[in-house]
């Protein structure tokens, strides 16, 4: 049996969970393992390794679903999504679409939050505009801003971040404290850590307009009744939290 044929058959066998006849004929098991036992050592290691990675990468999902349901879900996911990666830290990036029809409606969004958190965690901090620059601006309304690419705005009907924050905590008490209200959560990388800022609906909408590089004045024209306090609160937080990397 040639190397190519042998490797292709072994791999198919692992993915389909069935010891191929061709491998059966060539395999000399170690220890006192029989053929099936030997093959299962590798098969079980494959699923255990990927399940464990999904557990590490999506701890909040594990907390919500509990052991039994989480690992049943991971087995199905692994079967449908073989790893093409060499870095297991990225395994599971298709989970949001895999979970989109799950009976727990926010599970898919929570999976996205895990992925974005990891992406931000592994990213480099971008240099921000010095807050002193803003103090000397003559006409802030003409200001156009470019934000750090190291951010993600989650706008959800569910308190996603507050759920995510409880990952690893299985006590019922902990979840009963969550107020189930919609949430606008801006996650961003600053000073080596991933940070979070909560926005009102108006602030989230204004932020998205500014992100499209509308000037502050042009963006505010879209909101005739813009609450002044919320505008200045958003602006001051964007400046002090180093979210703005370029201004023009």
């Amino acid at each position: 049996m040639k190397l190519k044929e042998l490797q292709e058959d072994f791999l198919k066998g692992i993915l389909k969970n069935k010891l191929p006849k061709s491998i059966e004929k060539t395999m000399l098991p170690g220890g006192s393992l029989d053929l099936e036992g030997c093959f299962n050592t590798y098969r079980n290691d494959y699923t255990a390794r990927l399940s464990s990675v999904l557990g590490d990468n999506f701890e909040s999902l594990w907390t919500i679903l509990g052991d039994k349901e989480f690992f049943e879900m991971t087995l199905k996911y692994i079967e449908e999504n073989p790893s093409r990666l060499y870095d297991l830290g990225e395994y599971g990036n298709e989970l949001p679409s895999f979970l989109k029809d799950h009976e727990i409606a926010y599970l898919s969004e929570l999976a996205s939050m895990e992925i974005e958190f990891r992406r931000l965690f592994n990213s480099e901090v971008e240099e921000a505009v010095d807050p002193k620059v803003f103090a000397n601006l003559e006409d802030p309304t003409s200001l156009k801003m470019i934000f750090t690419k190291k951010h993600f705005l989650f706008q959800s009907k569910y308190p996603l971040y507050k759920i995510w924050e409880k990952r690893g905590d299985n006590s019922e008490e902990s979840f009963s404290q969550i107020e189930w209200v919609p949430e606008n959560c801006l996650m961003y990388k600053s000073t080596d850590t991933v940070q979070v800022m909560f926005l009102t609906n108006f602030q989230a909408s204004l932020f998205l307009n500014l992100r499209e590089q509308l000037s502050l004045g042009d963006a505010l024209e879209k909101y005739p009744d813009a609450p002044g306090e919320e505008v200045s609160d958003l602006f001051s937080r964007m400046v002090s939290h180093s979210l703005i990397t370029t201004i023009s």
Binding site: L3, L6, Q7, E8, F10, L11, I14, L15, T26, Y42, D45, Y46, R49, L50, P82, S83, R84, L85, Y86, L88
Partner: peptide, 25 residues
């Protein structure tokens, strides 16, 4: 060792036959 194929990484350290052919390879 080998660890899988480009389209599916098994993330395991897998043995191969030790013979002249694989040695040359």
């Amino acid at each position: 060792c080998w660890t899988g194929a480009p389209e599916s990484n098994l993330h395991n350290l897998l043995p191969f036959p030790y013979n002249e052919e694989t040695l040359d390879f």
